[in-house]
Amino acid sequence: MAQIVLETNMKRPSIIKMFWEKNKFAWLFILPWFVGITGLGLIPMIASLYLSFTDYNMFDSPGWVAAANYTNLFEDTRYIQAVKVTLTYVAVGVPLQLLVSLSFAMILNQGIRGLSLYRAVYYIPSLLGGSVAIAILWRQVFGRDGLFNEFLELFGIVGKSWISDPQYALFTLIALKLWQFGSPMVIFLAGLRQIPKELYEASAIDGANKAQILFKITLPLLTPVIFFNVVMQMIAAFQAFTPAYVIGGGSGGALDSILFYTLYLYMKAFQHFEMGYASAMAWLLLLLISAVTALLFWTSRKWVYYEN
């Protein structure tokens, strides 16, 4: 370092050169990441923004169509169906999943023995949940002769094929999402651990009952973690693809009942070769997710409580 400083004093090279001299190793170290983010992230994104205003079909050179792709989307009944399905999935699936994961986190936070084992066991579905194998398994479980119907038979209920019934298919996917409560649960557990013990002791001395402790201490102090989980799970839910692709046989299921946004986008891009249209869909999804995230951040001022 001393050498460099000395040299610059003598020759006074340009600022850019100085910057380079000083940081070249840092640049070299981030180069792999930088190449990745520009080559696989930034450039394709810019390209897709441009393509969303063209009729690109993967073979011919793209022709400019202005905003036609975007306006056509709102007349496309399947697109509207895809938006409805995805919004339902997010609006029902995410709160339920968080409720389940928070409940499990609270149970596991009781200081029971073998916590790390339980934590690992409940976390496994989160690791497996996005895989094709699980989606296939799910298809079997909720099929006409599946495990779920056999369970119902114990109570004398005659089940149906839940996967292929347009009324229930989406709910089997929401059930699959619920089952993957492990990763938000682990985050909730960490959050619960951080709540100071004194508060519980103090409230116990004051004679607070369990419900009061839950609503006056645990939940308010957990709101930053809840907020984090809501945002992350919401974004993940908007982008869900594999379960719908596998369970719906790649085509959105009976009557498009599980035609997820990303699935329809994939079909438009790689099955119908309407790349421009699919790019427009991708950008609208980005806008939609940004808008919902912004909305969450805005409301967070009202309900998220930061201790300091």
């Binding site: 399947r78 085509s251 009976a254 009557l255 498009d256 099955q271 119908h272 070769f273 309407e274």
Partner: peptide
């Protein structure tokens, strides 16, 4: 364009088949 056309064939028949 057959891929999109035949997909629509499947979807349209399904709507008839389910009585929608």
């Amino acid at each position: 364009g057959v891929a999109g056309i035949f997909e629509q064939l499947g979807k349209s028949y399904e709507e008839v088949n389910f009585g929608v």
